[in-house]
Write a protein that binds this DNA or RNA. Sequence first.
DNA 1: TCAATTCTTGAAAATGATTGCAAATAGATA
DNA 2: TATCTATTTGCAATCATTTTCAAGAATTGA
Lengths: 328, 328
Amino acid sequence: MVKLRDIAQQTGYSISTVSKALSGKGRMSDETRKNILSVAKNLGYTPDFYAKSMASKTKTFVLGLIVPDITNPFFAYLTRGVERACGETCLLMLMDSFRSLHREEQLIRAARFYGVNGVIVGNSRVNDELIDEISKYVPVVIFDKECKCDNVVSIVVDNYYGAYLATKHLVENGCKHIIHFGGTQELYVSLQRAQGYEAAIKESGLKSHIVRVGYTFDDGYKAAKKLLNERNQFDGAFCMNDLVALGVMKALKEEGKKVPEDVAVVGFDDDKQLCEVTVPSLSSVRQPVEMMGETAGKMLLELINGQSNTKKVIFSPSLVVRDSSARR
Amino acid sequence: MVKLRDIAQQTGYSISTVSKALSGKGRMSDETRKNILSVAKNLGYTPDFYAKSMASKTKTFVLGLIVPDITNPFFAYLTRGVERACGETCLLMLMDSFRSLHREEQLIRAARFYGVNGVIVGNSRVNDELIDEISKYVPVVIFDKECKCDNVVSIVVDNYYGAYLATKHLVENGCKHIIHFGGTQELYVSLQRAQGYEAAIKESGLKSHIVRVGYTFDDGYKAAKKLLNERNQFDGAFCMNDLVALGVMKALKEEGKKVPEDVAVVGFDDDKQLCEVTVPSLSSVRQPVEMMGETAGKMLLELINGQSNTKKVIFSPSLVVRDSSARR
DNA sequence: TCAATTCTTGAAAATGATTGCAAATAGATA
DNA sequence: TATCTATTTGCAATCATTTTCAAGAATTGA
C-alpha cells in the first residue's frame, strides 16, 4: 500500500510537499511538482479515503439506498434517479434486502457503520421503531410511509388519483362494465388504488366490481380465466399492476376476446420494458419513479446539510395511453 | 458531533478508557463501564467510521459489485446471485456505473477505500490496465473478460454454444430458412453468437443469413419489417437477445405471419419477465445468471481468504423452449 | 506488615492524510 | 555586503479512534 510517506522518501521531499503537489494546492516549482507526480504515478499511489476524509473536514458523501428487490424494475429505476441526484458529488451504496425483513433491519443498522451519511429506504415493511432509532443518527428518506421523526422525509405517490385517472379513461372510452383486478387487502397501496377506482365508477354512475387478485402474471391470468368461464361480462379492466394486466390479456386472448375492441385494459406502474413490448402495447399509470428517486436523493442531501425544509413530498401519477385501451 | 473526548470529559475518564468501555474490549470495573455507556447514550454518541477504520486495520467484509446498468434484468439477477453467496457472513455494496466509463473507473478506484474487501466487475468496458492496477490491492472477479493478473478470476459464458443450441433447435423443428438477427460487429459477444449460428447452419446443410441489427426492440422490429417488405422468405429467426426477438415478432404479426406456425422465433438471455409474459411466450437461450453471480461471490471470498485455486469459470447456457418455437 | 498478584486506568504512539505558518533559499536591490 | 522580497519547502498540529504498555490501586496470602 503506497502512502504519501513512500513518495516523500523516493523523491526526497517532505510529506506535506507531496500532499500539496498532488492536491495542486500549495505553490511550488514546476519541476518539483512534475517530479512528485511522476513518482506518484509510478508507485501507483491512491489516497487513503479514510485518512483523507478525516483530515480534511470536507465530507465525502456516501448515500445508502435500501431496496426490497432490485430485480423489480420499479426499484431499478428508482436507483437510477437517486444516482442522478448524486451526480459527481457523492457515491451511492445500493443494498438489496431481498424482501427479507431480517436482512432489511440488518442493512439499516449496518448502514451507519459503513460510512454512509444518509439512507434512503424504498418501500419498506420495517417497523417504525427501527426507523425512529436509526434516524437519530443518520438522516432518512423513506417511500410510501410517514414518520414523525425529525430526521425523516417521506416520499409518496398519489395512488388514489392514479387509479381514478385510469378508471375515468376507461369510462370515457365507452366501457360500461369495468372490473378492478386489485391487490390483496393488507397493502396500503392496494387500498388506495381500489378507492380511486370506486370514486371514478361512482362518479360515472356505473357499478363497481372489485376482484382481489394479487400481484403476479399468474394471479391476473387465473382470475380473468375464472371470470370468463363464469360468463361474467366485462368490457374494461383496470389492473393492480402491469403484470396482472398482462395475465388478464392472455386470458382474454385465449377466450377469443379482442383487446382493446372487446375489452380495454389498463395497468399500473408503466414498466416500459413490459408495456411497449407486448402486442397490443399496454396502457398504464405511470409513476415518475426516476424523478422520485432524484428527489429522494436531493432531499437526503438537504437533510445531511441540515436544511430540512420539507417533511413530505407527494407525486402525481399520470396516464400513458397505448393500444390496449385506445378504442377510437 | 459527539466524540470520545466529550464522553471522557463528562465522565472524568480518559479517552482510551472510554474507547475500551464502548468496544467492550478492555477490562474495567462494571461501574465505570456502566457509567460511560450511559453517558455515551445520553449524548447520542456514534463512532466516526473513518477514524475507526483508519485506526483499526480490521477487515470489514464488504463485497463490492459494479454493474453497468441495474435496470437491465441480467444484472439485477446477477446481483441476486452474489447476494446469495454473501449469505449472512458479508454485506454487498452495489454500485451502478450507468454505462459511463468514467464513472466505472471512479467506482473501481473508490471501491477499495470504502471498506470493500473485494470487487466483482460485471461486463466492463474498462481497460485491462485499471483492472491490473486495482487487483494489486483488492481481489477482483470479472465477467466476460480475461486477465493474467494474480488476483483476478474471470467468469464467462459459452455464447457460441448457446447460439448453436438455438439454431439447431430451429433446424430440428423443420425450419429451412433461418435468419440470424445479430448484434453489431464490435461486440465480442455478438461475434461468438454469430459463429455458433453459422456452425449449426453449416452442419445442417442450410444457407446462412445474418442481418446486423442491434440490441433493442426497435432494432428488431425495423429489420424484420424491412426484410418482409422486400419479400424475403424465412421461417426461422434466431435473435441476438429477447428484445430484438420481440421486435421481430411484432413485425411478423403486423405482416400477417403467425408465430410459430409460419415463423419460429428464439431469443437470447431468457429474461423471464419478458419471455413468459408475451403471447406467444418466447423461447430463449438461458444463461445461468444467478448461479454465475453466486459463483462470482464464492470465488471472490476464496480470493480474499487467499485460496485462489481457479483462474476462469466457463458456464454453459441452455435452451428454454416455449411457444414461439414449438411447432409440433 | 510486606510482598506478590490481580484489577483498573491512562499516557502515548500510531493510523495517513491536510494545512497554517515559519524557515530556508534564491534573486534583486541599495 | 547587507537588506529586502518572492519563492519554495518543511515542521508540527490536527482529525477521531485503537491499542500497547506501564503505572498505580486494590486485594490476597503468609
